[in-house]
């Protein structure tokens, strides 16, 4: 039997998950209708522009923000600050989560000691620590990085632990039959097998890292997009608030899809094969 190389229809499960061209058109039309309705409500004067600015006003603010980012200006500094905080926090949280996850999975004693504490910490509202972090790590980017790291840490840790614990028994038996060492089994079988779970954790972690960085900036900062939101709030410039929220969403989505792109490339074997 030769492997099929021609273009064949995908498996049904994948078909259902993928958006068809018609779905995209319907979604875009719905979105456009919503914006038109929103604009109409604002123009008719039903709501104050201090409560809900019109989409056109938000678009103008967004355009000037994007322009500033491209040609250079305060908004570029703010955006770069927040992006730096997100990435540094993500890297720190995910790195620690990975190392600790592997240790907890591989060393039973570590699991017994650390797991109750980690479960308790995970249940604690980490956002509530933000004022404390400000005191400990200052008004600079340090406290934001730690905040982002703190909430990006847990989803990765948990997914590493569950991914490593769900490795197929037959594969482990194969490695045992080869008298493989634990590190060998971890490197050759367990980690690659846990990769889909780890990537799911990475995607959750990057979204939470954005939240962490912005919350950190809310509590007290001198720069960053969260700082801009608070400033525009003080100045009753609600349109700018909305514009920055859109900007933050774009940043979050971009990072999310960057990870998904890497996942699709790296974990080629998890794709259903025609």
């Amino acid at each position: 039997m030769k492997p099929q190389t021609g273009s064949l229809p995908d498996a049904p499960g994948r078909d259902a998950a993928r958006l068809g061209r018609r779905d995209v058109v319907v979604a875009l039309v719905c979105g456009a209708l919503l914006l038109v309705g929103w604009e109409a409500v604002c123009r008719a004067g039903f709501v104050s522009r201090l409560v809900l600015p019109a989409p056109s006003a938000i678009a103008v603010e967004l355009w000037s923000a994007v322009r500033e980012i491209v040609v250079g200006g305060p908004m570029r500094t703010h955006a770069l600050t927040t992006i730096y905080e997100i990435l540094a926090g993500f890297g720190l949280g995910v790195g620690l989560g990975f190392v600790l996850g592997v240790l907890i999975s591989e060393i039973p004693a570590a699991r017994r000691v650390a797991m109750p504490w980690l479960i308790a910490l995970n249940a604690a509202p980490k956002i509530a620590l933000a004022p404390l972090l400000l005191v400990w790590f200052g008004f600079g980017i340090g406290s934001k990085i730690v905040m982002a790291a703190l909430i990006a840490f847990f989803p990765l840790l948990i997914n590493v632990v569950s991914g490593l614990s769900q490795v197929e028994e037959a594969k482990l038996k194969l490695m045992r039959s080869l008298a493989a060492s634990r590190t060998m089994t971890l490197a050759k079988v367990k980690l690659p097998d846990a990769m889909p779970a780890i990537f799911a954790g990475l995607k959750t972690a990057i979204v939470l890292a954005v939240v962490g960085a912005v919350v950190g900036e809310f509590v007290g900062a001198e720069s960053g997009l969260g700082y801009v939101i608070k400033q525009s709030e003080f100045q009753l410039d609600v349109a700018q608030t909305f514009a920055v929220i859109v900007l933050l969403s774009i940043i979050g989505i971009a990072f999310f899809y960057a990870i998904e792109f890497i996942e699709r490339r790296a974990l080629f074997w998890t794709r259903p094969h025609p």
């Binding site: 197929e168 037959a170 594969k171 038996k173 194969l174 039959s177 079988v189 690659p192 074997w269």
Partner: peptide, 14 residues
């Protein structure tokens, strides 16, 4: 010095 085979092939898909 022992080679083993199981009911499933147990190949690593990656």
């Amino acid at each position: 010095r022992i080679g083993m085979m199981f009911q499933s092939p147990v190949l690593l898909p990656w």
